[in-house]
């Protein structure tokens, strides 16, 4: 704040008028406080809180079910398992013809021993 020079360039009346305005004191009304407070609260950024992305799984088989991904995931597991059993028990022709090229044919190898070791003793 500073001292205000008077009378230099505006005349005494203007200085009086400016001083009168400067001396004006005003107290915000309760209604204005309420408006200000409502704005401040509405615009206030909310503090960040750590919220777990997935609620903790309850115990028991329901917990396991939730860990696996719920009923849709279990449905997928069951379908894949049944398909594997079916293919294993009755492989389709496409599978039986492709498998040897991937894994090779079944081969029996006898190293240095005749198939019938008793045949050496026979005359």
């Amino acid at each position: 704040m500073t001292r205000i020079e008077t009378g230099a360039d505006g005349g005494r009346e203007l200085d009086d008028l400016l001083a009168e305005a400067r001396a004006l004191e005003v107290v915000p009304s309760a209604a204005l406080w309420a408006r200000l407070a409502a704005d401040a609260e509405r615009e206030r950024p909310r503090p960040r809180t750590v919220v777990p992305a997935v609620p903790p799984a309850p115990g028991g088989w329901r917990g396991w079910l939730r860990l696996l991904g719920g009923w849709p995931a279990v449905g997928g597991f069951v379908a894949a398992t049944l398909a594997g059993i079916w293919i294993g028990a009755a492989p389709p022709t496409g599978v039986s013809s492709v498998l040897p090229s991937l894994w090779g044919e079944d081969v029996s190898v006898a190293l240095g021993v005749d198939e019938d070791p008793l045949s050496l003793l026979e005359g």
Partner: peptide
């Protein structure tokens, strides 16, 4: 502090400066 979510900070700022702004 207000930007970090402190509601008390806004009240203190208003109490200090709102009368001045209104005047």
């Amino acid at each position: 502090a207000y930007a970090n979510g402190d509601p008390e900070a806004a009240r203190e700022i208003m109490a200090a400066l709102a009368p001045r702004v209104l005047a």
